[in-house]
């Protein structure tokens, strides 16, 4: 059986609203940066709790192959590697930095 509702993402989003709407306006200005960092951390954690994992890949082997030039433009693996890196990074951005995806 799943854990009791509401789940992690809901709790984090709700708590974050309290932080930003109720607490932040009452904080001295030198604490606003810390409060915004906490809100940012909660948003990342909430997205992580609901994220779908990116593609499976042996990243160490991939890194070595790229460095050795085995995935360069003109090679058979180039297009496939570019697409794989895009998919991996898109999934990572969806959690850490969704705005980067435009």
């Amino acid at each position: 059986m799943d854990g009791e509702d509401p789940q992690a993402a809901d709790l984090l989003a709700t708590a974050r609203d309290v932080l930003l709407n109720d607490l932040l306006p009452a904080l001295p200005s030198d604490k606003a940066f810390a409060a915004r960092m906490i809100a940012n951390a909660m948003a990342i954690a909430a997205r992580a709790a609901e994220a779908t994992p990116g593609p499976d890949a042996d990243l160490r082997a991939l890194a070595a192959d790229i460095r050795a030039g085995r995935c360069d433009p003109g090679s058979a693996r180039h297009a496939e590697t570019a697409a794989l890196l895009d998919a991996i990074t898109r999934a990572r951005c969806a959690v850490s930095a969704p705005r980067a995806l435009g």
Binding site: A34, M37, I38, N40, A41, I44, T89, R90, R92, C93, V95, S96, A97, R99, A100, L101
Partner: peptide
């Protein structure tokens, strides 16, 4: 916390 969040800037830089 600041250092922890800096790590989460990496995927956006990678996308760029």
């Amino acid at each position: 916390l600041e250092l922890a969040l800096t790590g989460h800037m990496v995927p956006g830089l990678e996308w760029e």
